[in-house]
Simulated scan of single mutants.
Amino acid sequence: MNQSIISTFLLFVLIAPIFGQMFYPKHKMTKKYFIITLKTVTWHEAFYHCRSIDMNLVSISSKAENDQIKQQIIDEGHIEFGQFWTSGTKLPDNSYKWLGIGKRVGFSDWFSGKPDNFNENDVNCIQILEKGKGWNNAPCNLKQHIICEQELIEYEYCNH
């Protein structure tokens, strides 16, 4: 009896993933960005504002994603609005981490000479500079505009 139950369980464990792929659609993760320019806020306020609307302060993982955000800033007419907060923050070892996704910053688009250690203990947050100049490390208590991001799942269904 026990051997029959174990055999049935093992058969299910081996075959279930095959059937799952037949009946469930393929999917990919994408991001949608929301640029908020109605008011300026500190980095901490920006972080909590995005979380309060079930989003994250933007994290940028690739050149393509960075270019997409810069283009959206231009397309939506926000190019003259100044700086925008990202979820990037400096760690004690002087590296940077995206708190929105919990990963270290890999790709970067630092403005020339940045990051710097001007007033070393005070420049811990990453901002996107005006007019697409790149990133800057800035004091977290500055008031900036916000870019929130929302992860979306796009499904692909079979059309047979």
Results as ranks from 00 to 15, higher is better:
I53G: 05
D93C: 08
H44K: 14
H27D: 06
N117Y: 02
P139N: 03
A16Y: 11
F107A: 03
I5F: 15
T89A: 00
Q150V: 14
P92F: 04
T37S: 14
T89E: 00
E156C: 03
S7N: 14
E80D: 14
K32G: 02
E80C: 03
L142S: 07
C50W: 03
T42I: 09
N121S: 09
F118M: 08
S62F: 05
C148F: 02
N136F: 12
T86D: 00
I35K: 07
K28L: 10
P17V: 07
N117R: 07
I60Y: 08
S87E: 13
T89R: 02
N66A: 15
E149M: 14
K131H: 12
A138Y: 10
K63D: 12
Q83F: 14
L11I: 12
E151Q: 06
Y96W: 09
Y96T: 03
D122E: 15
T40G: 01
F23I: 15
V41L: 10
N2C: 04
E45T: 08
I146S: 12
W85N: 11
N66H: 13
G102L: 01
I74E: 10
I60D: 02
I60G: 12
D109E: 15
I18R: 13
V13D: 04
K97Y: 00
N137P: 04
W110S: 05
Q127K: 08
Q83M: 12
Q68R: 09
N66I: 09
H44Q: 14
L91T: 07
D75T: 13
S7L: 03
I60L: 08
G106N: 12
L91P: 03
G100A: 07
C50Y: 04
S59Q: 08
K31M: 07
N56S: 09
G132W: 10
W98M: 02
N56K: 07
P115Q: 09
H27W: 08
K143P: 02
E156Q: 13
H44I: 10
I53N: 15
P115S: 08
W135L: 13
K31A: 06
I35F: 10
K131L: 10
Y96N: 09
D109W: 11
K39W: 01
L11P: 04
I15H: 05
S4A: 13
Q3W: 07
L91A: 10
G113A: 11
K133S: 09
F81P: 01
W98K: 01
D109L: 10
L38V: 01
E80V: 05
V123Y: 07
L14E: 05
F9I: 11
I73D: 02
A138W: 04
H160T: 05
G102Y: 00
V105T: 12
W43F: 13
G102V: 01
A138R: 02
Y24A: 11
L11A: 13
A138E: 10
I69G: 06
L10C: 13
Q72L: 15
Q71V: 06
I5K: 14
T86H: 00
M29T: 09
D122Y: 11
